[in-house]
Write a protein that binds this DNA or RNA. Structure first.
Lengths: 198, 198
DNA sequence: GAGGTTACTAAGCGCTCGCTTAGAATGGTG
DNA sequence: CACCATTCTAAGCGAGCGCTTAGTAACCTC
């Protein structure tokens, strides 16, 4: 594997392999997917995968890391967008829901293929997940402190709000009656009720 | 595989194999688990598995079916336990949450290993899932019709209530600060808020 | 305790897996 | 167009997979 990380052609091939891997992992799971599946879907021979990646697990790790990082960024930006807890909650629940519905394929890997990561990679991913959880919990606690939210148990409310968003990746398929925007709008109202901001 | 379905010794062995399979499937996924894993954990040789089951997939199917059936039963009983939509919702959310927390291992297979089922088995399981979804949706609609619930969108509210319960299987580990009962009580309050019954 | 049914194992078959190797195309640069 | 790094493939290796077969151990009945 030569260092071709900044050459356009290699980049395009990497992207094709990643995209094929995302589809396959989301559909059949990491262990249910073969390197031949991925390579064939990317229009290459199985050996080509190893020109660009160390292993099948590395492919999963790269997908998982970039997915987690973009989710964390989304959450941080949404929550930082307003000092008003209600506005911040609206924004983060909306964006989180849209993202998990629109990219339910990628989000499925992010949330349901953690066990297939190597211990080192899993540890790294886990710290990103903790940061996401902490952001949501801090927002709920801030809202309670500001008198904007009213909950019997802030931790449970935070878990529920996050859990609702994540689980979209499990049940949402682009084929139903709802657009990602529909789900997001419905979930914003639900989140406001959960934290007692209505 | 002789027909030993009602002989106590064979039943005990079946149960050991099922239990070992549940643990392994929940931990590593269906495709990440080998028949040797299951047999060894059950204290037997790999061949013994095939004395009692046709295939590894059949083991998954039996686990998935019994898990789905007991969840459906739980939901039907809870919802049928009262004509009052608020009481019925309290009961179903409570029992559903307790079940998904206490048996998060089994519930993980039920909810996240569907793709590994054969097409025929998957179709059968899907009809059970639809009945569960319909029960919850009907309850929300009943509450709205009775003026006990107030929601802008009953379908979304029903999806959210069910989604919250299912996702417990993903995040709950018996090792945290909350008992299944704690989660259930918190989630009952949250569900009441979601449907606008507070 | 002999006979027959049931429960299990040792060994391994055929196949597919992740991954490697050796070498052939490909394409940018003088 | 010669040169050479880059990009890719044909072929296949060793390991582990799901599952089978042939035979042994355990148990129940009489």
């Amino acid at each position: 594997m030569p260092d071709t990380s900044d050459l356009p052609r290699a980049d395009a091939t990497r992207a094709r392999l990643m995209k094929a891997a995302v589809t396959a992992f989301a559909e059949k799971g990491f262990h249910g997917t073969t390197t031949r599946d991925i390579a064939t879907a990317a229009g290459m021979s199985p050996a080509a995968l190893y020109v660009h990646h160390r292993s099948k697990e590395e492919l999963l790790y790269l997908i998982s890391r970039s997915g987690h990082e973009s989710t964390l960024r989304l959450v941080e930006e949404a929550i930082g967008s307003s000092d008003d807890p209600v506005a911040a909650l609206r924004r983060v629940v909306h964006d989180f829901a849209v993202h998990h519905a629109r990219d339910h394929t990628g989000a499925r890997i992010v949330n349901y293929e953690l066990a297939a990561l190597s211990p080192e990679h899993l540890a790294e991913i886990r710290t990103i997940r903790r940061r996401i959880e902490r952001e949501i919990r801090a927002l709920v606690e801030r809202g309670v402190a500001a008198g904007a939210f009213h909950v019997p148990n802030a931790k449970i409310a935070a878990v529920a709000v996050l859990s609702l968003g994540i689980d979209i990746a499990r049940w949402y398929r682009g084929t139903g009656e709802w657009t990602p925007e529909d789900v997001a709008e419905g979930y914003v109202q639900i989140a406001l009720r959960i934290v007692g901001a209505a």
